[in-house]
């Protein structure tokens, strides 16, 4: 089953290039293109893609607002922020809005394929440097509802870069059950993305950043 992708970018040439590039991979199907944030939210609802590649700077509605709406309205649709400027403001904004990850519009096109596949697999990926900065940036409720042991285990594994599938195998449970646990974790922590949950885990010391990278 192929991965359904929605491309949201106000530059026609970029949409054209992304579609051309992504569709070379048999696993991907570009199901739609949005030229602004408003279209992106609408099409996310209509097309229910697995993932939205979201440009952040767009007319009518910017990518961060669109990300936040999509994550609240359609929690199963993951969002990867695609930016041409790597500034803290837009990265933090995207993560806070519920994007699972972000990518720079740069020449390392292969990263894009990897990132999309990881995101769809439920894997959280971002560099430790960014993680460290994000620790201070994301807000959590003061006293979130306590996680169960199983939820803590799963959060720890998420933070360690496990995919849904990897967690399911290790814990000997179904992928669907993993997703249910993750939903529960997100709602207890009052966040909208796995990435935010992982940041929570790092902040509360549930997991440590890998040594030498902190």
């Amino acid at each position: 089953m192929s991965i359904c992708i929605l491309i949201a970018d106000d530059h026609a040439v970029v949409r054209q290039g992304l579609r051309m590039f992504l569709e070379m991979d048999a696993d991907f199907e570009v199901v739609g293109e949005a030229e602004n944030g408003e279209d992106a939210v609408r099409l996310a609802g209509e097309l229910q893609p697995d993932i939205v590649l979201m440009d952040l700077i767009m007319p009518v509605m910017d990518g961060i607002t669109a990300t936040s709406r999509i994550r609240r309205q359609y929690p199963d649709v993951e969002v990867i922020a695609l930016t041409s400027v790597l500034d803290d403001g837009s990265i933090f904004g995207a993560i806070r809005a519920g994007a699972i990850g972000y990518l720079l519009k740069d020449t390392k096109a292969d990263n894009l394929i990897y990132a999309v596949k990881s995101a769809v697999a439920g894997q959280v990926q971002f560099s430790p440097q960014v993680a460290k900065r994000l620790l201070k940036e994301v807000d959590f409720p003061e006293a979130p509802e306590p996680l169960t042991d199983r939820e803590s285990d799963i959060l720890r594994m998420l933070a360690s870069g496990y995919s849904n599938k990897g967690i399911a195998q290790d814990l000997n449970i179904g992928e669907k059950t993993v997703k249910t646990h993750v939903s529960s974790i997100l709602s207890k922590l009052g966040v909208t993305s796995r990435t935010q949950a992982v940041i929570y885990a790092l902040r509360t010391g549930l997991v440590m950043l890998p040594p030498g990278q902190s």
Partner: peptide, 13 residues
């Protein structure tokens, strides 16, 4: 920058 990104995508393709 968009053009360059497009070129990178096109070249990789």
């Amino acid at each position: 920058s968009q053009a360059l990104y497009g070129i990178a995508l096109g070249a990789r393709t």
